[in-house]
């Protein structure tokens, strides 16, 4: 009976979200794909020009640079954020005094917006680098590690919470059994805890991977592409192409489409890979 009711009301419950999804995602996405094949000044006067935008896009050395720069950034942040996040989660599930306080403190950076964070860290970095007669925007290498530090600082707390939930869900009897069988704590971690928290790892690596690729506001606030657009991540490169270059709106749009495909493909690949590693409880 309840199931039947639920089915009857399904459209009513789903409709608001679906409409929001349609307006906020499907329509802009479809329009975006259409615009990527057009030449336009404002989105209302688009004239289709075939695939020219896509060929132009790969002629732009800055785009290729941004692509590699972003890929490197995503790889580094996925590894560091998950490593640190997991380590802190392990420490904070050991029942240390003040665990709750630490959890809160670690989570808090995540509540600050990216732009604010970018400007604050810019001050901090420049404050330190000034002692060496340098600034953060001196070279794109500094910008890179600056961004890595900010993203870590911001996202470690978030993945930590997910890992804590995962670790707490590992049945204590499994760990106990392993210990009785003489497993070292490293073996417990390797063979019991890790496989059991695999679903959390799936989610966290998905989140950090896509976040790494999509990072925009921190990049804008911290370096704004300086020096010479060489610390530009993909999202900022797309934004600058669309708004900053007269006549390149279509190319910017084409970049955005390619960008979504890359992020989507990577996310799917990563999900299938980590899903395989999950174990049934």
């Amino acid at each position: 009976m309840t199931k039947k009711n639920l089915r009857a009301y399904f459209p009513i419950f789903a409709l608001p979200t679906f409409i929001a999804f349609l307006i906020g995602f499907i329509v802009p996405f479809g329009l975006g794909i259409y615009l990527s094949f057009c030449k336009f000044t404002t989105v209302n006067d688009a004239v289709p020009i075939g695939t020219k935008n896509y060929t132009d896009m790969f002629k732009d050395p800055e785009f290729i640079h941004a692509l590699w720069y972003t890929a490197a950034f995503a790889v580094v942040t996925v590894i560091t954020i998950n490593l640190f996040g997991f380590t802190i989660a392990m420490l904070l599930t050991k029942g240390i005094k003040g665990t709750n306080l630490f959890r809160t403190v670690f989570f808090m950076p995540n509540l600050i917006g990216g732009i604010v964070l970018g400007y604050i860290w810019q001050l901090i970095f420049n404050g330190i680098l000034t002692h060496f007669g340098l600034t953060l925007t001196y070279s794109e290498v500094y910008g890179f590690w600056g961004l890595v530090i900010i993203t870590n600082w911001q996202q470690i707390g978030y993945v930590m919470i997910i890992y804590i939930a995962g670790i707490q869900n590992v049945p204590p009897e499994l760990i106990e059994a392993a210990k009785i069988d003489g497993a070292t704590s490293f073996q417990v971690l390797r063979n019991v805890i890790l496989p059991m928290v695999m679903p959390s790892i799936t989610i966290c690596s998905f989140l950090t991977l896509t976040n790494g690729f999509k990072l925009f506001d921190q990049n804008l606030a911290l370096t704004n592409g300086l020096p010479g657009n060489r610390s530009e991540l993909l999202a900022l490169n797309i934004y600058n192409t669309f708004y900053g270059r007269v006549g390149y709106e279509g190319v910017g749009q084409a970049k955005a489409v390619v960008f979504s495909i890359i992020v989507g493909a990577l996310a799917v690949a990563q999900l299938t890979f980590t899903n395989k590693k999950e174990v049934q409880q």
Binding site: A165, P199, T202, I203
Partner: peptide, 9 residues
């Protein structure tokens, strides 16, 4: 475990 994932999703 699955519940956790579902919950997060």
């Amino acid at each position: 475990m699955k519940d956790l994932k579902k919950g997060i999703a």
